[in-house]
Amino acid sequence: MEALKQELKGKIIEVLNLEDIAVEEINDNDALFGDGLGLDSIDALELIVLLDKDYGIKLTDPKAGKTIFQSVETMATYITDNRTK
């Protein structure tokens, strides 16, 4: 789980071009949207593609995204429970 969280942080920085942020600056429970990393709706689409491409998870319920993408912690838990690759 710890390794997955580190991997996720790296991928989020890379996919979303968060140029000024380092992996160690993202805490597991930091909010990804709003006050935390300040991601927006386009980033949400990028994260949905990331789940599909790298972990084989297709999000069919858009409302579920709100819970899944709360933080790196919630993303890692969801990926661990649902990944197909």
Binding site: V15, N17, I42, L45, E46, V49, D52, K53
Partner: peptide, 13 residues
């Protein structure tokens, strides 16, 4: 690269 799947919006926009 992704065989017409996994298209992300940013570069398209």
């Amino acid at each position: 690269d992704n065989k017409e799947e996994f298209l992300t919006p940013t570069s398209f926009i």
